[in-house]
Simulated assay, not measured.
Amino acid sequence: MAFWPVEGSQVDAAARGEAQKVTRLGKWVSVVLSAEDYQRLQHLEVANAPSLNELQPPDLPS
């Protein structure tokens, strides 16, 4: 996993547990999560839950 410094209100919101959608050229490409939410997802993966790669993204409006 890569690390880089990021600042801003979106990062602050993610740190408070409010996931932030990241877009590139108008297309949803990733999500910024709090470290706690990410660790929770990693724990679920270890518990034999489907991995994030196996989950189908829902059809969400942009």
Rank of each mutant, 00 (worst) to 15 (best):
N48F: 02
T23P: 02
L55F: 00
T23H: 10
N53D: 14
A49E: 13
D12T: 05
S34D: 04
Q56Y: 00
Y38H: 13
R16G: 02
S9V: 11
P58L: 11
S51Y: 07
V11G: 01
A35F: 03
L52K: 06
K21D: 09
L55A: 02
K27V: 10
S30G: 12
L25F: 14
Q20T: 03
R40A: 15
Q10Y: 15
L52G: 05
V22C: 06
A15K: 13
S34E: 04
Q39T: 01
L33E: 02
L41C: 11
L60R: 03
N48Q: 12
L25R: 08
R24W: 11
S9G: 10
L25M: 05
S62N: 09
Q20L: 03
P57Q: 08
A35T: 08
L55E: 03
V46N: 08
V31A: 06
L33I: 00
S9Q: 10
V46L: 12
D12K: 11
L55Q: 05
G17I: 01
E7S: 14
S34A: 05
E36C: 01
N53V: 12
W4H: 11
V32K: 01
A49T: 09
E36P: 00
R40T: 06
D59W: 04
V46K: 08
N53M: 15
Q56V: 15
K21V: 15
Q39P: 00
V11S: 04
V31Y: 09
R16F: 01
L33G: 00
G8Y: 02
G17N: 02
P58M: 09
D37F: 05
E54A: 12
A2V: 12
Q56H: 05
A35W: 00
P57H: 07
V31G: 01
R24M: 14
R16Y: 03
D12Q: 10
L25V: 11
A47P: 00
V29L: 03
V46R: 12
E36Q: 11
G26Q: 06
D12G: 04
P58A: 14
A47T: 07
N53G: 09
S30L: 12
K27I: 07
A47Y: 06
K27Q: 11
E7C: 09
L44E: 09
R24A: 13
N48T: 10
Q10G: 09
E36N: 07
D12S: 13
P50W: 04
A13Q: 08
